[in-house]
């Protein structure tokens, strides 16, 4: 094994796993080649746990999220919910959707401009034939912070602010009383001032309803704000994961270190250059080696791992809650 593990001081309550990706691969044909968008991922989301999935654009976050939702079928590997492998028949998927709901980025894009708030939120309950539609809608809206809910029933998306629209999208997901929310960049298109409100809502839903969430983002501040655990993705793989405090204050993978270093307040920046990574051309050895600042600066050579960086692939990180990094250098210097 090449990954390294450090025990966490306070793992606290080890949460039973609710949703899990096991050795997941998702590929697409792309310009005559194959894009390995998700290229070997083990990831577990515990009951009542908020996990942030971070990484730069194109690294495979949305593909992984969509696969967890059953919207994309894995090329190999599996998705498990409550310990049972996901089935892809339409009935099984429909039942699954009640448990695991998607919250999309860009509320303007995901709401139908000609549909009232009521209609938008009632759509899910109708498909699933839930009784007491009006109460279901009202309670979902008020849980999403739109109170009193009746005041919003007949409004159209263009009559709402960006933050309110995002709340409607969240209410639509809550209406089915899911166990897990998968939120793809839930605040990326929102103003700074509204952002905190929506994040606070996600935290409150966890505290009050015990919801689990996978939050997909490239915003490390968001992870710091709401997540228990963070998984850092690079070119289809999780390269570092663990409790937020540990990974974000003492990152061990050079890629995580670079991501943190470019935050406005950090002292020394490592701005990665080079073309954005291409999932149709995943490099051999460590998939990050062509852009790795630790390798480029000679530190990997000093630790005697530079040869392995270029030639020896890292093993897939297992789905454990403790901190771990897929890096030859991190393993050698710890």
């Amino acid at each position: 094994m090449t990954e390294t593990q450090t025990p966490v001081e306070a793992v606290g309550t080890a949460r039973p796993t609710l949703l899990e990706a096991r050795d997941l691969h998702v590929g697409f044909p792309s310009r005559g080649r194959r894009a390995r968008a998700v290229d070997g991922v083990d990831l577990a989301i515990g009951e009542g746990e908020i996990v942030a999935l971070v990484g730069e654009s194109g690294c495979g976050k949305t593909t992984l999220a969509r696969t967890l939702l059953g919207l994309e079928r894995p090329t190999s590997g599996s998705v498990l919910y409550g310990g049972t492998a996901l089935e892809y028949g339409s009935k099984a998927l429909k039942a699954y959707r009640r448990e695991v709901q998607l919250v999309l980025q860009d509320p303007m894009g995901s709401l139908n401009p000609r549909q009232t708030v009521y209609e938008a939120v009632a759509e899910g309950p109708r498909i699933h034939g839930l009784p007491g539609e009006q109460e279901v809608v009202a309670s979902a809206l008020s849980r999403a912070g739109l109170r009193p809910p009746e005041r919003f029933f007949l409004r159209y998306p263009h009559e709402l602010s960006g933050g309110q629209r995002q709340r409607v999208v969240i209410a639509g997901a809550l209406a089915l009383e899911p166990k897990v929310l998968i939120a793809d960049e839930p605040v990326a298109s929102l103003d700074a001032s509204v952002r905190g409100e929506i994040l606070a809502l996600l935290l409150r839903l966890r505290d009050e309803l015990g919801l689990s969430a996978l939050v997909v983002t490239h915003d490390l501040g968001l992870a710091w704000n709401i997540a228990d655990r963070v998984a850092v993705m690079y070119l289809g793989r999780i390269v570092e994961s663990g409790p937020v405090e540990q990974v974000l204050t003492a990152p061990r993978h050079p890629y995580t270190q670079a991501l943190l270093s470019v935050l406005p307040e950090s002292p020394e920046r490592v701005v990665l250059t080079g073309e954005p990574p291409d999932p149709t051309r995943i490099p051999g050895g460590c998939r990050f080696h062509a852009r790795c600042q630790v390798l480029a600066s000679g530190r990997a050579a000093e630790a005697g791992v530079d040869g392995r960086c270029r030639a020896e692939p890292l093993a897939v990180l297992p789905a454990v809650p403790t901190a771990q990094a897929a890096c030859h250098y991190a393993a050698a210097v710890d």
Partner: peptide, 11 residues
């Protein structure tokens, strides 16, 4: 700010 997102209420 850990587990404490800060926003601004109202519209």
């Amino acid at each position: 700010s850990r587990l404490a997102p800060k926003g601004l209420g109202g519209d």
